[in-house]
Design a protein around this nucleic acid. Sequence first.
DNA 1: AGCTAACCGAGACGGTACGTCTAGTCTTGCG
DNA 2: CGCAAGACTAGACGTACCGTCTCGGTTAGCT
Lengths: 210, 210, 210, 210
Amino acid sequence: MTKTSPAGGKSGHQARASIGARRNPASQAAILDAAEAILREEGLAGFSIEAVARRARAGKPTIYRWWPSRAALILEVYQRFKQAVGFPDTGALRTDLIAFLSNNLVGFWQSGMCGTVFRSVIAEAQTTPEAAAALAAYESARRRDATLMIERAKARGEVTAQTNSLLVVDLLVAFAWHRLLNGRLAETPADIEAVADLLIAGMQKPPASA
Amino acid sequence: MTKTSPAGGKSGHQARASIGARRNPASQAAILDAAEAILREEGLAGFSIEAVARRARAGKPTIYRWWPSRAALILEVYQRFKQAVGFPDTGALRTDLIAFLSNNLVGFWQSGMCGTVFRSVIAEAQTTPEAAAALAAYESARRRDATLMIERAKARGEVTAQTNSLLVVDLLVAFAWHRLLNGRLAETPADIEAVADLLIAGMQKPPASA
Amino acid sequence: MTKTSPAGGKSGHQARASIGARRNPASQAAILDAAEAILREEGLAGFSIEAVARRARAGKPTIYRWWPSRAALILEVYQRFKQAVGFPDTGALRTDLIAFLSNNLVGFWQSGMCGTVFRSVIAEAQTTPEAAAALAAYESARRRDATLMIERAKARGEVTAQTNSLLVVDLLVAFAWHRLLNGRLAETPADIEAVADLLIAGMQKPPASA
Amino acid sequence: MTKTSPAGGKSGHQARASIGARRNPASQAAILDAAEAILREEGLAGFSIEAVARRARAGKPTIYRWWPSRAALILEVYQRFKQAVGFPDTGALRTDLIAFLSNNLVGFWQSGMCGTVFRSVIAEAQTTPEAAAALAAYESARRRDATLMIERAKARGEVTAQTNSLLVVDLLVAFAWHRLLNGRLAETPADIEAVADLLIAGMQKPPASA
DNA sequence: AGCTAACCGAGACGGTACGTCTAGTCTTGCG
DNA sequence: CGCAAGACTAGACGTACCGTCTCGGTTAGCT
């Protein structure tokens, strides 16, 4: 739990040492660690500011000072381990899409309870407008980035230039969300290739109406 | 012990008359009405058994007697006005899919705050295993029914017989869920035709691997 | 989960200011005042933690934090105004006993509904073991103190040295309790002298068996 | 629990047979038995109309029809097994008083949890005016009857004729009540002779004021 | 070097809601 | 009409968290 605390207080367990009138990174880390652990172990139920404070051995005001709401804390937990996964660029759309679904979405969620945390984020966003806004902003940026895969395929001539790449990304992401939220992640890897093939086939034919 | 507690029901407002030792439909209706109203007006936040009881002028035990949990009550509220929407059968896959997305999913959610209620159902399912199970069962049945649209198109030769109709329905539903949960329902009708066309195009070409 | 719960304390009436992470004497006083008022006005019926909290404008957990049970709260209410009555020492046993019955017991209970409160304490002790233990400890100490009156009389030679002073005090206290619990306090002052005389006469003769 | 029930209903356990439109003695007995058993086993706490109905397999309205309150039911339970103990008449006051305390009061309460039941009666009387009235009437009659012991002693010349026999009985009963309510019944038999001797000695000397 | 300002752990506070229990009323259907 | 049954409104029970507040202690940086 990242307690430094050489100068241990009188409180039985060793406490974090004060670093004076500045935000204490050790405290922040301890709080995020505790929040992540609770989310992983008990899910969104059982996640309360009170419980996080208890586990992190932090005061509640310390949490409220830095995260205005439960939602903000949950989101930061998610983003902390989300950052490092880049988008695939294999040179072919089919393998790009398969890798995207497998590594960035489904597979990522299946590793280490990350899916549980993300389910919590989504659930929280249905309740709390600010969580909804933060999630929307985050997702919007991710989707825009992901269109690069489609655009590269267009440039290579793999799919028709009329393809609405944002919509295709939407479909991919929606598919993964749906499986996550329905608790059907386990059966999903078997469907990934079929989804990629179906969408690629759809993108190869120019829209009839155009 | 030794509580006086007058109670008795003659408390100013006219109370529901007792009908003896049987479930009182008037009470159940009042409770569902109150639950629905709160969900519509205030969303999942602000929805509490306490609040429902207050608004319905019902006792809390009456609610717990018939609905084992918050989730069960929310689900029944949703199912009460969900029942009547049948699946389209227009004779052509394209119009079927468009009608399905428009009427059964997106348009339905946009009417009368039904979307808010369904968002609550989904959020609750992320937290409460039993809500998750109930929702999964419900959705599974709905999806199976919806595959009929695809199967009819197969029979008409509109799409290749290798089409995995369950997967296509999954994609359609996932698309709608995703928009709902992201608060992007308003911009969705404009995309419905494009989604239908993309998927139909995908279904017309037999899988390359086959 | 997902409770909004505005709370906040700025609720119209001025609230007690927080004094930090220490027991707030103002809250404790308000709670005891409210408890006493309810006991006086409505008796043990009508006394509930809920009602006390409401009247004291305090939260229920604040009460439970400091008083583990209804009984503990009632007892403290009683002890709060019980403390100041000392035992008489008039120089003669007869006047001591009369003053003891009149001032420490019967007369005290008749003033300001204290009798109602003490009846509540006794009734609660019949139900709750811990209230019984607390009351027993309290009464035991009081009786021991009261034997001083008898012992002084022994030293003065007013009564025989074989007198079991604890038993005599028991009889005095029992007489007063009995009248209190039977609602016969009003007729009791007229009997006090007779009781004193009877017991003093009994104490003057050494036990025949000895 | 005194269920007769030859004609068992369909309710799993055998039910009492209806005897038509008349008060059913079997039901009354079952209710009183259940009430007594609960009082003995769990004391006044744990005694509720609900619990009695459950244990007696009776409907709550049946109880409310015949006993207007919890207090009435408790009192009847007590009186049911109280009836048979007569007052002693040994020919000497000392043995009369000792027998009275031993058999009618302390010893009776110590047998078969009767004391627990009577404590409940007294506690209930502190709360419920009607229970207080019923108990007062009952006790008043018993005390009047008990004065016979003193009056016979007066007639035999054992005690002075000025003795206020009602007051002496009061003291005896009060002593016993006090020990009962303080949970000190076990140590009381050892004190009974001393109490009798003390009071007899007191009664032998005419009041100084006369 | 002393003072001030901010952060920290802690935990009490007024509250809301939880899910359970009982009170006392009511009505049905059987006998 | 009496009875068993059990649903009903009402509300108290004791617990968990909420979000706010103040405390006492600590350290850093300014004066």
